[in-house]
Amino acid sequence: MPTEVALLESRAMRVEHAGRVEVLDKVKALVMLPDGVHVSTEGVARYFEVSTEVIKKLTQRHRDELTQGGMQILRGSDLGEYQRDNLSLSSEGEGSYPQRRSSLTLFTRRAVLNIAMLLRDSDIARCVRTYLLDAEEGWREGYASLDRRVTNVENCLAGVGTALQELGPVLNRMSQRLDSLDQRLDATNRVVGAMSNRLCELSGDMCRMDARIDDVARQLRSLRRRRRR
């Protein structure tokens, strides 16, 4: 597990954790500017409970890294356009924006988290780092648990595979016997069908014999009546 010192010293490690911006609000509410996207230098200082000078010096030392994290400095026409688009924007929500200022530094939540991983002398920054590392540890433990479960499932599946291999010859013999039974059933059905046809023929013969017997009986009765006369 990475330590707080490693997080402070390693830019690569800070980049690895740069997307975990949700930890900021878990430690303390981060007040955004009215655009809902950025925080000013004063707002960042207020969040970490340090002076604006501390944030400015940190920004100067790590400008390239913070710029990659979303920090931007507005000047000239860009600053004027931003102020026109955010007429209600205030300097930390109190009063109105000073109309005369040469530049305005804006921080995204990602950049604020980056500052939390750089700022040494702030209890809030330390809490953010601790929360970030604890959350990672919990994630690692969860991943390890999941990995163990996946391994157990794989082992079970391996056992099932072995059992299926052992059952293969047995299932093959059963399949052959079933095929043989199907063939015998087909032959039996053909015999039954032939017998059914023969019975139908015999039934017809019986009906014809009954008719002839009735005819002969009528003839005999007729002969007897004639003889009596």
Rank of each mutant, 00 (worst) to 15 (best):
V160Y: 11
R177C: 02
A211W: 00
V153R: 07
T105D: 06
Q83W: 08
E166F: 07
E154Y: 06
L133N: 06
R46M: 12
R101S: 06
L119F: 11
R14G: 11
R61I: 03
R190D: 14
G80V: 12
C156V: 12
Q83C: 03
L87M: 08
F48A: 03
M71T: 06
L79S: 04
S122P: 05
Q72D: 06
Y131K: 15
D210I: 09
A29L: 10
D179K: 13
V15L: 15
R61E: 09
A163M: 13
L89S: 01
I213P: 00
S102D: 04
V31M: 08
V150D: 00
I124D: 02
M174C: 09
G138P: 00
A217D: 14
Q99V: 03
L167W: 03
V112G: 09
R109T: 04
S222C: 05
A135H: 04
I213C: 08
L8I: 06
E136K: 11
M13C: 11
D179N: 13
S103R: 10
E92F: 15
E9W: 11
G76K: 08
N172Y: 07
L199T: 01
L164T: 12
Q176N: 14
V160D: 01
L223Q: 01
A163P: 01
G161H: 15
E42F: 13
I55K: 09
V27W: 10
L33N: 13
R226C: 04
R120V: 12
T67Y: 11
D182N: 05
A217S: 14
Q99C: 10
G138W: 08
G69P: 00
E94W: 13
P34M: 02
R100D: 07
R221S: 07
T41F: 13
R173Y: 01
R75F: 08
A6E: 15
R212V: 04
S77A: 13
E166P: 10
C200V: 11
K56L: 01
L104N: 10
N172V: 10
M1I: 02
T41S: 03
E81R: 10
P169R: 01
A158Q: 02
R20D: 15
L146P: 05
R140K: 15
T52S: 13
E137L: 08
L199G: 03
V5G: 14
L220G: 00
S90C: 09
I124E: 04
D179V: 11
V50S: 05
I73E: 00
I115G: 01
S196T: 05
D215L: 06
R120S: 07
S175K: 12
A217I: 11
P169I: 06
E201L: 00
T162M: 06
E4L: 12
R46D: 15
P34G: 09
G204A: 01
Q99E: 07
E65W: 12
M32D: 09
Y97D: 02
E22D: 14
D64A: 15
D147I: 02
C127L: 15
H38T: 00
C156Q: 08
W139E: 02
H38G: 00
V39T: 08
S180L: 14
V216T: 05
L118C: 05
D35K: 00
V5Y: 10
R120L: 00
G161R: 15
L74S: 08
R190L: 04
R140F: 04
R227D: 12
Q60D: 03
R218E: 08
L7W: 01
I213G: 03
R46H: 13
S102T: 07
T3Y: 10
L167E: 13
V160Q: 11
N155Q: 01
E65A: 05
E49V: 04
T188Q: 07
L164S: 11
A211V: 00
